[in-house]
């Protein structure tokens, strides 16, 4: 069992959890993920690392409330324990002195881009970070991201804060201006990563994306996370999760991510009914 040391909401429906997991903290590197299972009946789900403290033996993950598991996790508090916390899994981000690296993060993936930006900067890269959200109320960690990059551009879809537009707009501008960009790293919803890759393709800038398919074991034994990259089948959990964004069969990824939609809906509805009844009993 892994104790939750701290838990806090970042913005509506996005939470940060710090977990006591010394073995994972000891080996954690930017770009890696953990597989968690909340309780005995729970499913195994991947969550990317946001932060870790090797001395204290803690690992921090961020998550957005989507289905049953994340909503259940959202109800947990400091002092509660989760059943399983496995990692660190996946290949870490390839960190080298590339020159200028643009880190693009969408949604709650801002949390996971921070350690990547930090590592890139430490390796001597000029780091430009782009972070986007639907509106101002969903932005978080702006200061933290600013502290690990040389330049930060924030966008909101509705223009309620900073630049209006999606996160690919400033990226396209930089590329069209002819700015020297050696590498782009994009982490976030798969549709966002697809558009980032499409934006950089005509400019031939190497673009790394962090694949986020459904996973079960996360250690390479089942193939649930298989994706086509460059026409070859790769397991995101052991061959990735980071791969060349220009080589990904995005439509296949989207369709595989939808494979259990009816069951996910059923599970969530059952959970919501259960929560409603539990609240009724209390009152």
């Amino acid at each position: 069992m892994y104790r939750i040391i701290e838990k806090s909401p970042l913005v509506p429906n996005i939470h940060l959890v710090k977990v006591d997991a010394p073995a994972v903290a000891n080996k954690a590197q930017a770009g890696q993920f953990v597989i968690i299972r909340v309780d005995e009946k729970g499913e195994r789900v991947p969550l990317t690392l946001a932060d870790w403290d090797r001395e204290a033996g803690t690992v921090t993950i961020a998550f957005m409330e989507v289905g049953k598991t994340t909503r259940q996790l959202a109800t947990m508090r400091a002092g509660d324990s989760i059943s399983n916390f496995v990692g660190p899994l996946g290949n870490p981000t390839e960190i080298e002195k590339f020159g200028t690296v643009v880190c693009v993060a969408g949604g709650f993936a801002v949390a996971t881009i921070v350690p990547i930006a930090r590592a890139m900067r430490a390796a001597g890269n000029k780091v430009i970070a782009l972070m986007g959200a639907r509106n101002k109320s969903l932005l978080f960690w702006e200061d933290r991201l600013a502290s690990v990059c040389d330049e930060l551009i924030v966008t909101t879809d509705d223009g309620s804060y900073a630049r209006k537009g999606v996160v690919t707009v400033p990226l396209k501008e930089m590329l069209e201006k002819g700015e020297a960009i050696n590498r782009v790293i994009a982490v976030g919803p798969s549709i966002m990563m697809k558009f980032v890759a499409a934006t950089t393709l005509p400019f031939k800038v190497k673009t790394i994306v962090s694949l986020n398919p459904i996973m079960v074991d996360g250690t390479g034994m089942c193939g649930a996370c298989r994706c086509s990259v460059g026409g070859e089948t790769k397991f995101a959990c052991v061959d990735g999760p980071e791969v060349d964004g220009h080589q990904v069969d995005w439509e296949e990824l989207f369709s595989r991510q939808r494979a259990f939609l009816p069951e996910e809906k059923q599970s969530l509805e059952m959970w919501q009914r259960h929560q409603a009844e539990a609240t009724k009993v209390q009152t």
Binding site: K41, D217, C222, R256, E263, E264, Q266
Partner: peptide, 27 residues
């Protein structure tokens, strides 16, 4: 979608007890 390795199929069924879904979360 709908094509599984035997490992995934058996892991979901035997280890994750998907035959007891939705009492168990793995579908």
């Amino acid at each position: 979608g709908g094509i599984f390795s035997a490992n995934e199929f058996l892991v979901r069924t035997n280890l994750m007890k998907s035959y007891l879904f939705p009492a168990y979360d793995t579908p």
